[in-house]
């Protein structure tokens, strides 16, 4: 059934990246990333259920540099997927389809996701400082 040399429609690498296409791909990418990100979340809950020692290990891991490298993109992925998901829900009811509003909403989503990530990081950092 192998058919070679048949004409194919241009794929991703042919097109110039645009805000619309990049955000669309990012929605899928963050969705898959969040699925992978459920593993540290389940590990954290499991560590709490397993007892004080394993929970202390989990907290130390998430507080470390490696933990931060996992957590910060995790939070961004969540906020991005959330904000862009809301954008999708508006499209689902038929709102915001004009080219101009698609670019406006795309920019809003990107700024909101970055802003919320920064806000969460500052809040968590303050909490941690407060707890000693």
């Amino acid at each position: 059934m192998e058919i070679t040399n048949r004409p194919l429609s241009p794929h991703l690498q042919i097109y110039k990246p645009q805000l619309t296409s990049v955000l669309s791909i990012l929605h899928r990418l963050t969705g898959v990333a969040l699925v992978v990100g459920t593993i540290p979340f389940v590990y954290w809950l499991g560590a709490l259920a397993a007892g004080p020692e394993s929970f202390a290990n989990a907290q130390a891991l998430f507080g470390s540099v490696v933990g931060q490298i996992i957590l910060i993109p995790w939070v961004f992925a969540l906020f991005y997927h959330l904000c862009n998901g809301v954008r999708h829900l508006f499209w689902d009811v038929g709102l915001g389809f004009e080219l101009k509003s698609i670019y406006t909403s795309g920019t809003i989503v990107l700024v909101a996701a970055l802003g919320l990530t920064l806000l969460a990081y500052i809040a968590a950092y303050t909490m941690r400082g407060g707890a000693g």
Binding site: G51, F55, L78, L82, G85, A123, A124
Partner: peptide, 26 residues
Amino acid sequence: RLTALALIPLSLWLVASIITITGADY
């Protein structure tokens, strides 16, 4: 779509709530 809608408040709550126990002990 239904689960997406439900996840808007649920995930916002989750992040906010976990932040309140950042670095907490057992």
